[in-house]
Amino acid sequence: MDILFLTIPIALVLALIFLGVFISSVLKGQFEDLDTPAHRILLEEKSIKGKTNESEQP
């Protein structure tokens, strides 16, 4: 079981990386609004200017 002395620290380091990623995403505010992005992704990026007549026809 001596391999545990090596694998456990490695597992811990890996887990620490994920913890770091989580903390940085919290700091960037990714969890502040959980509703809107789900809608936002469905919307067109197109500008509304210069787009008037029949622009919706396929």
Partner: peptide, 18 residues
């Protein structure tokens, strides 16, 4: 969120729906 296109002085508009 299209407000910046309606008024060029607006840099960004973000809506939180909840």
């Amino acid at each position: 969120e299209k407000l910046p296109e309606l008024n060029p002085n607006i840099i960004s508009a973000r809506l939180n729906m909840s």
